[in-house]
Amino acid sequence: MSETYDFLFKFLVIGNAGTGKSCLLHQFIEKKFKDDSNHTIGVEFGSKIINVVNKFVKLQIWDTAGQERFRSVTRSYYRGAAGALLVYDITSRETYNALTNWLTDARMLASQNIVIILCGNKKDLDADREVTFLEASRFAQENELMFLETSALTGENVEEAFVQCARKILNKIESGELDPERMGSGIQYGDAALRQLRSPRRAQAESVQECGC
């Protein structure tokens, strides 16, 4: 168990089929574009530890199948998610129009407090753009979402999307708006945080040890 982190957040990646959800996840974790990806049937997942405002946060990311038909099945992944990337494809108006549905699903099934970042993916295909930056950012504002345009191909803004979402969750924890102890919050304390919270003395001792190595 060499993994030490302060918090663990459960994340979702949702949005219509073919918007590049799995490629975003792959780019985030492997720092590579996945050229030959299969479409997702059911669920894919991955995890990564990132450093956000001096805290180590482990993200457990569930990447879901996008086709409408799979919603009844993918809903079981929503439970207890703390954050989500809501993805559309800037070259497809249809995927943008579906956002409201996805949003309702996420808020209803995951939790009211879920922190969502809207990702306009395939930024690299600007020539085929069907959804402007402006209208999407307006939509984001109206629905209290963060917003970025991303490219799973070049990697632009991919890490940022995950980090921004995680940062917002951390802020909410610090401000007391989110309570990690609440069931189904999608947040868990990592070993490091647990030690500090539950037994400060031992945590000190251990942190000394850790510094030693």
Binding site: I41, G42, V43, F70, V73, S76, Y77
Partner: peptide, 8 residues
């Protein structure tokens, strides 16, 4: 849930 692992 079984659908988590058996769907695919």
């Amino acid at each position: 849930d079984p659908v988590l692992y058996m769907t695919e």
